[in-house]
Nucleic acid binder design. Sequence first.
DNA 1: TAGATTGTTAATCGATTAACAATC
DNA 2: TAGATTGTTAATCGATTAACAATC
Lengths: 208, 208
Amino acid sequence: MRTPKHDLPEAVAKRIPIYYRYFKLLETDGIERIKSEQLAKLVAIPSATIRRDFSYIGDLGRSGYGYEVSHLIQIFSTVLKADILTKMAVIGVGNLGRALIENNFRRNDNLQISCAFDTNPALVGQTLNGVPIYAIDQLVTVIPAAGITTAISTVPSEASQGSAEQLIDAGITSILNFAPTRLQVPRHINVRYLDLTAELQTLLLFEE
Amino acid sequence: MRTPKHDLPEAVAKRIPIYYRYFKLLETDGIERIKSEQLAKLVAIPSATIRRDFSYIGDLGRSGYGYEVSHLIQIFSTVLKADILTKMAVIGVGNLGRALIENNFRRNDNLQISCAFDTNPALVGQTLNGVPIYAIDQLVTVIPAAGITTAISTVPSEASQGSAEQLIDAGITSILNFAPTRLQVPRHINVRYLDLTAELQTLLLFEE
DNA sequence: TAGATTGTTAATCGATTAACAATC
DNA sequence: TAGATTGTTAATCGATTAACAATC
């Protein structure tokens, strides 16, 4: 896996979104300042890990005082580009694709699914939760026109490599892939796999 | 010295389901034997890592020969309990819960969602893809009666802690949680978080 | 036996965390 | 100054992987 922009270690990068979500919760609860020890209880991550993680990003706190929640939000917002709208395409409008579109990251106003693609002619031309559904072969024109570089793929395994290649042709650089088979992609393309069955099986491995 | 499965390192445990899936693919392709070097190309994991992972489970291969696919499947099946039916409950029948139920891990015949629960009275009593939907307060009787110990929770963050407590009362020991807030649970309860928004945000952290 | 590939060793790399000096 | 908590150090732990002896 490649290192993110500001040289954040992979393990830290995975925790940034978790921290950010808790900061927003604290903000809505009207809590203006927090100590690493208190935050540790909330997020279930040791305070030493939290302080070390934060130090990758900057000097965010004050000794003997803690962290200003509003300041944390401000800094983490820019790290997560939460102040910029990120438009995304969904590929595959099956049960899962539909659920994603219906939900559309409603709680994060900077993340927006703005178009979807499917092979099923019965779906093409329809609109779901305001999101237009196009045919797969329109992808190469629609995606660049909309300036989209991020795709969420829910296509079946068999189709996922072919579909990824079309996405890359269309200018996509980041893919969140719900199909489990490993994609062969150029080095500059980011892929993350979200494999529901594998997660479940791993969970069950820890059962007594 | 052959390690019992609860001694598997976390990192290895996460890869077991991936290996297993590829073994099944090899089987359907009629490939009867494979070398760690070949498998490495398929799963995108270095061959040294593969051999080391396998050695946690047993002496699975033969020097100068490779691994018998049928043997790998046999051993990994028992490790993953893929030969035993695991019944599961889905909590929360929103867009995501519905997608999971409609899909129902169709490709893994040992994983079965066999009941669902929701607070919405309009849903209670209905059946979705053959899965009955109960009211939340029926959980404590239905779940033990069905001998279910695994739950998939898609309830909103606010409800997730309360819902988890009810699940634990009903005898659930493993929870796959789609809500991002960290659950406070006793030590013997397994929880894994599957946070779609966080995954997406982490993906975007790696964008140039 | 000759050739090939496993399973293991040992070195390296990356992540975590206890402890505390620095700092507010 | 006294008290508190950060940011950092250094030790530890866990994961990865190159290299190769053991083995088929």
